[in-house]
Structures are given as C-alpha cells and as structure tokens.
Design a protein around this nucleic acid. Structure first.
Lengths: 223, 223, 223, 223
DNA sequence: AATGAATGAGACTTCATTCAT
DNA sequence: TATGAATGAAGTCTCATTCAT
C-alpha cells in the first residue's frame, strides 16, 4: 500500500488542482475551442497521459471548472448577506460588491464563466443558463420579500431579477477585456446606485460608501 | 453587355445573401464551432466550391454576418429616436422597445450576436466587444447630454452606459433559450421602468404604456 | 454538374474498389488490428482524407470487405450445382472444388474471411458466425433432401453440416500459411473422397476425377 | 532459509497461475485486443506493477496461455489412447470424445485457442498453426500406421489429417457461440460416425456408443 | 514484491480549404 | 461560375509499459 498512503493522495490532489488551474489560465487566454489538450499539458509541463489519468476528457475538465466557479460565487453571496441587521440598501450593496470582488479575485475563472461557457456547445449553454436562472431565482425571491415590506417598485420580479443580473454582465466583460489593472470594485458604487434607484430603495450616499468600505475590508481579511 | 453584367452581378448578390442567411440559420442552431462548412452548403443546396467562391473562409463569413447584424441594430435606434419632440422618458422607451422588437424579429441573428460571437475566438471577442463599446459610448453621450439639462442621477456615465446595455443581456438570453413563443416586447415595460427609475428620470406609467403601443405600431407597419 | 457526370462516378467507383483491394491486401498481411488506416493509405498512395471520403471508418470498410467475400462464395456454389443432371457425387464434387477454386482465386480475401474476421471484435465474430451458419444450413437442407432418396448415413444433419463445413477449414488455413504456390485444388480430390465416404455416398474414383477436371475447366473459362 | 524460499516460490507460482487463469477468463469474454492489461489486473485485484513482475508483456502472457492449453489437449489424447487392446474404431472414438470432453471442461481456454489466437497477430497465427500442424502430423502418422494394417481408404494422409482436424472446428465454434448449456459431447457420436465412415473403418454402432460411455466415465472420474 | 502514477507513441477521425475539370 | 474529390494538419484519446517509492 505504498502508493495508497495519505501523502500520495495529497500529492495527487495537488496535481489535479494544478492541472485545473493551468487549464483555467489557458482557456481564458485562448478560448475553449482554441485550447487543445496539448496546450494545457505543455503549459502544465505534464504528459498527455497524465492529463487523462486525472480527467476523463477535455469537456469533463471544463465542466468541473465551471461548476467550481459557480459554487464559489454562490458562497460569497451567502457570506456577505447581513441577516442580523437587515437593511435593504446595505444588503444590496454588500452582495453587489461581494460579487464584483469575487470576479476581481478570479479573473480567469470569470472569463470562463461569463464568456467561454457560452460558446462551448449547446449542452453547455444550457448548463450555463441553468446556473444563471438559479441565481436569478434567488434574486427574484429576494425581490418578492422586499415588496411585502417596502416601497420597492417592481412590476414583475422575474424580469427584474434577470435585468439586475444582466446589469453586471458588460461591466465585467469590459473589465475582463481591458488589460490595465483597473479595480472592478471601483465601478461598484455606480452599480449600487443604479440598482437601488431602479428598485426605488431609499438610501444615503454616504451610507453606501460606508457599506462598500466595510465589506471590502471584511473580504480582504477573510481571503 | 452592360445590362448583362449588371444582371449577373445582381444574381451573384442574391446568392451571396442567400448563403449568409442560410449560414445564420445553421450557426444559430448548432453553434459556430459545431457548424461545418459542409453543414452550411448542404442546407443551402450549393457546392463547397461555391461557398469559397463567395466567401474567403468560414470565419470571414461569420464576421460579415456579425457586422451586418450590428449595423441593423444600430439603425433601429436611430430610427426610433424622436428628436423633434424630445422627451427623455419617451425616447428611452422608444429605444428600449425598438431594440427588443429587433431581437424578436431576428431571433437567429440575435443568438449569433449575443451568444455565439462570444465563444468563437479571442479575436472575435474583441470585435464583439468593440461593437458593444460603440453602442455603449452612444448611450454614454446621451447620458451626458441629459445630465446638463435634467435631474438624472448618474455618478459615472461610462459605467452607467455599460450597466444599461447589460441589463438587456440575460432578458434576451432567457428568451432565446426558451422555445415557447413568448413575446420579448412583453418584458419591455418592466425594462423601461427599471431603467428610467435607475436614472431617476421622471415619468408617468400611462405615458410609458402609450409610448410602447405607439412605437410597436410604427415598427410593425414599417416592416 | 461537371463532376456529377457518369465518367466521374466511374472514376470514383474504380478508386473505391482500389482502396478496398489495397485494404484487403494489407489486412491479410498484417492482420486487422495491426493494420492502421495510415498503412492502407500509404500502400494505396492516397491521402487519409480520401480514405474517409470513401469510407466512414476502418471497421465499415472491413465489414464491406467481409460481406463482399461472403457473397462471392455463395454465388459460386449456386453456379456449379448441376441441378439438371442430378448426381449426388457429382454435385458434391462440383461444390467442393468450386469452393476450393474460389479460395485459390481470392487468397487475400480468404484470409480475411477465415482468419481475420475471427479476431476483429465480438460483433464481428457474430457476423462471421452467422455467415457460417447460413451456409451450413444450406448444406443441412441438402443433406435432408439426400436422406429421403439415398442411402446417406447421417445421424444428425445439422451436426453433419457443421462437420462438413469445418473439414475445409484447416486445409485452407494450411494453404494460406504456406507461401509456396501449392495448388489448393490438388487437395480437392482427397476432400471429395473424405466427404463422400463420410456420408456413404457411392461413387467411382474415375468419375470423381472426371468431375473435377470438368468443373475446373468451366471455372477457369468463366473467369 | 531453504524452506522459506521454497514457500515463497510456491506462493509466487500460485499468484502467477491465478493471473493466468484470470487473464484467460477476461480474454475469452472480451477478446485479446479488447482486453487491456488494466482489465486483467482489475479482475484479478492486483496492481499493474504486479502484472509486469510476473509477465514480461501482455503478449507473452497470452503466448504462455496458449502453450499451456495446447499441452493440456495433447495430454488427453495420449491418456485416452488404448494401446493395449488396439482397435481402430475404439481408439478413434476415444480420442474424439476425449477432445470434445476437454473443450467442454475448458470453454474459456477453448475460445482462446480456437478463436482469439487466430486474430491476435500474424506471428501468433504462425504459432497457432504450428500447433495445429503438430497435432495434425500425429494424426497423419496414425493414419499411415493404419494403412499398412487395415482397409483404410485415404489417398493422402497429410491432407486427410488436416480434414479430420478441421472437422472439429465449426462444431466447437458453434458450441462456443451458443450460450445454452448444450453438451458438446452429445455431438460426439455424429462426429465419430462421420470420421470413421470417411476413413472406411468398419464399426458397429452399438460398440461406438459403448466406447463413448466408457471413456466419458473414465474422464469424469479422473477429473 | 508490490504499487500505481507517469509516459508518449500512435490510433482513429474531422474538416477547412484547394484546385483540376 | 460551379463542382466536389482530394488534401493533410491537427485534434482527442488509449494503452502497453516503466520506474520511483
């Protein structure tokens, strides 16, 4: 049982993760269809055989990458929500900034999630869209809860949720495209204002700025 | 001789356009990477040789398709803007509805423009994004003009323009994905409200509804 | 329709057949699993692309080869049977010699049919065996017909048919293995005697020799 | 120290044999080319490393398997030959039934010997055929001895031997292919009759049946 | 003796593009 | 102009074998 030891398993896990990370990098640079398995293994300095020892296929690896990213983003939303001292504007701000911060931390993965996943293949387009719908439906429920207690102005929650989700899309795309190291979170304030006003949630400018500072600090420390 | 060559040229143009249309259909069904040139020529009932007589390559054809679509969408915006009787809420509504109506008219092209173009290749991603930036910069200038005259609340016009553009994205994606013949323009009202509120443009609900009815009528007749 | 002409189609047929023949040669030399598509195209001096233009896959080509051979052998049996002047010993002799002659004419195909087809894959083993069973059942019916009219001694026709079919197998295998240009039909006389005696069909040696001479002459001329 | 090493050696032998047996099972189920070394080691619950400790290569293992089987079959022929009370029909019957019984006892090995070995590769085909020739030459000598003393009708002993050997082939192949637990030895009587008549060896039906019963009893007990 | 991660040659196949007719 | 046979680079993946532990 030499090779079944815990140590060996750990080394395997590390290598597997390393391949995933390398693949993410290459995918985000060249695009899924223009990235060959050869490209990945050369970047990772491993053999083709090793690649297929750890992953069943190129598509399976990509799927795993995508699922991982999606999960990571869901976790951040859960984490930043301040359910104890509930305030609409505060929570909105925290979630928006939380999301932008995540994109900033995982630029490569973000590119895969937002851009690449769209063009992989029809099966994948569905998968991608299911994940969007899921997070959208969370937002939808959120909106519905608001409506009962506050003066939020939303004719149709489902539509509003999709609009809200979409409003991130080009902002992040723009940031992904630009090579300069702009801070995505800098756009956060504008996105918060836009969204809060759209939903007619009352807020004080200074509070929003305060919330942003707070949550960014929390996130940076927790890293 | 002149006439003959002109007729010949016309016949060529028609065939060329037919190939473009057929390709659009196939691309939107199977995705760029899963559409082979053979697929296109079979659907169009022409030979591979013909294809390459009219187009230099598969990618060139796709580029042309993309440029055409983009132009078409820009035209509609220009067309619906009512510059004579300027009203912020009216023009906003007209442009939003005009855009949604266009997507509805060209579902296939929309899929190519929004989904496929993203995954083709990095070069193409840039191209796609340039087009987004262009229309975004139009919106940006619009916002700037508003600001000087109205009580619009926008901290940063460029960012706001991107947010505004993005807010269409998932709404349309959702519609593209769903097979049911939902009317995309039905979501138009919600999108108008969301955007107008986000920008703190004052409006009357009944007016918006009126504007929508008007512009849809105009567009349907102009078809 | 330049290329859809009859002439072009003919050239295609010839090329297709040429690939089949070349493949048969290579398969019979190196065995199915040790023959790569590359081996075949190199021997045939064509490109890989051409191979796949004419055949869907290596396996499909092999199947076609196998089906062709099987058909050819069935035809010879039908051809040599003398139904007008029916004589048990004569027909037996004619069929046996006809078969041996066929193997002699198609040494490569014979190797594929008898040896290679066995090891290709389970699906193929079934296919191969179905063909054996079919020709065996023809023999079986033959035996049953004999029994009603003659003093043939067969306890079980199905078993006897299989035994009869098998009795060719190593004789031909031996001939396939030996590089010397031995005449397979030389063993024909012995095989006839063996089979006729086994079935207790009465015959005169000199007649058998005469039948053999006759049928070989016929076959050689019909070539 | 002596005893320990002897015990160790024994343990090694047992494991080696176990791998051989497992491999035989897998080969006969999936065919040589569709059986990977991984398949074998998984079925045997050993590591790939172990496999290569005991065998130099997949082909070498198969060769050993084949040689073993061949030897086993030869032994049975020697065993059942009743040289003391020599009778042509008796010995023929005993050998035929002995062989069929062996196939019945070792269905897996039989499949390898008769079917798989043919398709492995050309080198192997030669090997396989050498073994056939060897047993065929034994029969050939047998026939020659008969001829001097009996009224056996054989024009050419070598050919006759091959025919005789072949006559088993499809009978056994048929049995291998059919999943039903038919008794192969049931066909034995028919094969005896066919062969004896073919060689014009005189016999009594009742004697043959008696010989069959006898030898089967012997073999069953000796198991 | 045993383990199984690692290797990489090579297999099959696809498909954008060319070019002779 | 039109045709489609021909090309071959490149892609994905398998698997027998090795070797450090």
């Amino acid at each position: 049982m030499y090779k079944t030891s815990k140590e060996t398993q750990e080394r395997k896990d590390v290598k597997r993760q390393f391949i995933l990370d390398t693949a993410a990098k290459v995918f985000s640079q060249k695009g899924y269809h223009y990235t060959s398995v050869k490209d990945i293994v050369e970047e990772a300095n491993i053999s083709i055989g090793s690649f297929y020892f750890y992953f069943k296929s190129k598509e399976e690896l990509f799927t795993e990458l995508f699922v991982n990213i999606t999960k990571k983003f869901q976790k951040v939303t859960d984490k930043v929500l301040d359910v104890d001292h509930f305030s609409l504007s505060k929570n909105f701000t925290r979630v928006i900034i939380g999301n932008l911060w995540m994109y900033e931390q995982h630029k490569e993965l973000a590119k895969i999630m937002l851009i690449e996943a769209a063009g992989v293949n029809p099966t994948f387009q569905k998968m991608r869209f299911d994940s969007i719908k899921e997070s959208s439906s969370t937002v939808e429920n959120w909106f519905k809860r608001f409506k009962t207690n506050h003066a939020v102005n939303i004719p149709d929650e489902k539509t509003a949720a999709l609009i809200y989700e979409g409003s991130f899309y080009y902002l992040i795309s723009d940031w992904l495209e630009s090579d300069q190291a702009i801070k995505l979170t800098d756009s956060g304030y504008a996105l918060c204002i836009y969204s809060l006003q759209a939903l007619k949630i009352s807020f004080e400018d200074s509070d929003i700025r305060q919330y942003i500072t707070e949550v960014l600090e929390e996130l940076t420390q927790s890293k």
